Every structure is written in C-alpha cells, then in structure tokens.
Simulated assay, not measured.
Amino acid sequence: MHVHQMRRLVPALSLFVAACATAPRTPEPASTSQSITPSREIRSNLIGMTASELVSHLGNPVLQVREGPGLKMQFRSRYCVLDAYLYPPESGTGLTRVSHSDARLPSGQDTDQAACISQIEATK
C-alpha cells in the first residue's frame, strides 16, 4: 500500500469504528401520565381518624377503654401493639378523633408505627 492510499484508509477506518461503537443511552423521561399506585395505601399517621374509620382500616380493636372524655382503642398483631387515643373536638361537640397514637413491641419497647399498622392490617 502506498502512503497516499494509507492516508485515505485511516479516516475511513476511524469512521467505521465510530459507527460500530455504541452511543451512550440517554434515560427515557418518565411519563407523567403513568403513576405507580400501591394496591393498598399504607397509612402511617392515624391522627384525625374517627373510631369507625379506625375499625374499617385496622379491624376491631382488642381493647376499648373510656378515659374521661376520651377513648383509648388498642389494636394488636403478633409483633406489635398500637394504641390510638380519641378525644372530642375542643368545642365539646362532634365526633371523637385520634389525637395521639403510639406503637410498641409486645415487650413494651417503642417500634415503628407505620410497620405496626401494616402488620395489623395484614392480620385484619
């Protein structure tokens, strides 16, 4: 091969190699029309729920205790205990609603409330 022919071949080869190389892929934009929705919403905050909403969400409580104007409802799974405290509005009239809730292990140690709610829902 002559030098002149080599000079023509090198650019042609470099174009061929460049064409064979894979181009970097750009991520496809996420479609805004599609949204992933879980089959069941996980609720980690019970604040504001009424007693009937709690029952429909968590099943029947294992314990209900009247404490003055308030009501304590207790729900359990094999792994945790959830207490929900319901009180009437400050006006004194209207439905009692959850104003505080807490979750603990059967041993009494605090635990993650969202995980406890999921476990109670699974056993409902």
Rank of each mutant, 00 (worst) to 15 (best):
S52W: 10
P69Q: 10
R78M: 08
F75P: 03
V65G: 02
M73N: 10
S44R: 10
Q64T: 03
T37Q: 12
G48Y: 09
S44F: 02
L63P: 01
S33Y: 11
S31Q: 12
I47C: 11
V55N: 03
L71Q: 11
T37F: 07
G48E: 08
P69A: 15
V81G: 00
L58D: 03
V65M: 01
F75H: 11
S39C: 06
V62D: 13
V81D: 09
S52R: 14
N60Q: 15
S56Q: 14
G59C: 00
D83S: 10
Q34E: 09
A30E: 13
A30K: 11
S31N: 09
M73H: 01
Y79D: 12
K72T: 15
M49S: 06
A30T: 13
K72V: 13
C80E: 05
A84P: 04
V65F: 00
Q74S: 14
K72P: 00
N45H: 10
M73G: 03
A51S: 10
M73R: 05
A84C: 08
R76N: 10
G70K: 11
E53F: 02
R66T: 02
P38V: 02
N60D: 10
G68A: 01
T32D: 08
R66D: 01
G48Q: 00
F75V: 05
E53D: 12
G68Q: 01
R43M: 12
P38N: 02
I47R: 15
K72F: 09
S56P: 00
P61L: 02
L54T: 01
F75Q: 04
G68F: 01
Q74W: 01
A84S: 14
C80M: 07
L46E: 07
R43Q: 14
D83H: 09
T50G: 00
S33V: 12
G48I: 01
R78L: 00
E67M: 03
T32A: 11
S77L: 07
H57R: 13
I36C: 14
S77T: 05
T50Q: 03
L71V: 06
V65Q: 09
E67I: 09
I47H: 11
A84D: 07
V81T: 13
A30S: 10
L54N: 04
N60K: 13
R66F: 05
S56E: 14
P69Y: 05
C80T: 04
H57L: 15
M49T: 06
P69I: 09
T37V: 12
V65W: 01
S77H: 00
V55K: 13
L82Q: 05
L58H: 07
R66H: 09
M49G: 04
Q34K: 06
R43L: 13
S52G: 02
T37P: 00
G70L: 00
I47K: 15
F75C: 03
S39M: 09
N45R: 13
T32S: 11
R40I: 12
